[in-house]
Design a protein around this nucleic acid. Structure first.
Length: 274
DNA sequence: ATGGTAGGTATCCTA
C-alpha cells in the first residue's frame, strides 16, 4: 500500500485555493497537512477541499493566525487537538490513518526577532513548546508506534539547511539553542528526518524563501523549516521524498513550499484494520 | 547595516 503525505505551510487557505489545487495535482497526497490556515473551523472552505479529492478532514483553526488542518483521501479516526504551554494557539493535531498510523501535524512558533527567551516571550514560547514535545515523546520512546510527525517546525537544523550558516547563527530559526532543542526532540523518539535520508547533508535544501527578497530564485536565501519525521517503525518503508521548490515561483505563492514523502507499507497492516 | 513583502483585519500584529 502506497501512502503519500505532504506538509505545507499555506499561509492562508482562503486566498490560495487555486494554488492548493495545483499542489494537490502535483504532489498527489493521500494526506495533506497544512499549517497557517489562518481561519476558524466554521469558515474553512470544506467543500472546495473535498472537491479536490480530500473529503476527510480534521480542522484546528483560529481567527487570523496559526491553525493546522489535516486533509485526507482516506478516513481519519481518533482525531485530537493538542495544546501546550497553557496557550490557546491552534498548532498541533493528532489523527490516525488506516494501518494504525499516528500522524502529528505541527506548527511550531516562529519565535519573533530576538533570540533571547528572557526578553522575547515568543522565543520563550518556541523553546517551551519544543521542550514540552520532547518530554511527551521521551516518555513514549521505544513504544514502536507507526508515527509520522510533520509540519512547519520553524527551525533549520543543519548548516546546509540555510543559505549561509555563519550569517544565520544569530537569526531566529538557526540559532544553536533552537537547533539543540530540535535535535533533542528528534532524539527523544529516534525520529528519522525523511528528507535527509534522501538528500545528503552536504547538499543545500530549502523549503522557505522570504517574501522580502526582490528575486527569491536569484538570491536563493532560503531555509529548510518544514519537515517530515518518521518513527523507527516507519522509517524502513520510506520510498521517496520531494521538496517542490518550483511552487515558490507560482502566482501568488506561499513563502513555504510543499514537502512530500511516499511510503510503501505492508498490505497486512490494512487487512488487519478492517 | 538596513529594510525589504505578505496576510488578516480594520490598526498594527505576525511572519
Amino acid at each position: 500500500m502506497r501512502l503519500r503525505i505532504t506538509s505545507w505551510n499555506i499561509n492562508s487557505i482562503r486566498i490560495r485555493l487555486d494554488l492548493l489545487a495545483r499542489v494537490v495535482r502535483h504532489c498527489r497526497p493521500d494526506v495533506l497537512c497544512l499549517q497557517e490556515t489562518k481561519v476558524e473551523n466554521g469558515r474553512f472552505p470544506r467543500h472546495e477541499v473535498a472537491a479536490l479529492g480530500l473529503p476527510h478532514m480534521f480542522l484546528h483553526g483560529q481567527k487570523s493566525w496559526h491553525g493546522v488542518a489535516t486533509l485526507a483521501r482516506l478516513p481519519l479516526r481518533d482525531c485530537e487537538a493538542v495544546g501546550w504551554c497553557d496557550v490557546e494557539d491552534c498548532r498541533h493535531t493528532i489523527c490516525f490513518l488506516p494501518g494504525d498510523i499516528e500522524l502529528h501535524n505541527l506548527y511550531i512558533p516562529a519565535g519573533g526577532d530576538i533570540p533571547d527567551p528572557e526578553v522575547n516571550p515568543k522565543f520563550r514560547h518556541k523553546l517551551e513548546m519544543l521542550a514540552a514535545l520532547t518530554d511527551y515523546f521521551a516518555a513514549r520512546r521505544g513504544d514502536g508506534a507507526r508515527l509520522i510527525l510533520v509540519g512547519d517546525l520553524n527551525i533549520a537544523p543543519l548548516p546546509t539547511d540555510v543559505w549561509n550558516h555563519r550569517a544565520l547563527l544569530k537569526v531566529v530559526s538557526h540559532t544553536p539553542v533552537e537547533v539543540e532543542a530540535l535535535t533533542r526532540l528528534q532524539r527523544a523518539y529516534d525520529f528519522v528526518d525523511a528528507v535527509r535520508t534522501r538528500i545528503p547533508p552536504e547538499e543545500k535544501v530549502f523549503t522557505w524563501w522570504s517574501y522580502r527578497a526582490r528575486d527569491w530564485r536569484k538570491s536563493n536565501r532560503g531555509r529548510r523549516l518544514d519537515h517530515i519525521w518518521l518513527s523507527p517503525a516507519l522509517a524502513p518503508y520510506l520510498r521517496e521524498v520531494e521538496v517542490w521548490a518550483e511552487a515558490r515561483g507560482l502566482e501568488r505563492p506561499s513563502d513555504h513550499v510543499p514537502v512530500t514523502a511516499e511510503l510503501e507499507l505492508p498490505e497486512s497492516w490494512f487487512d488487519a484494520a478492517v
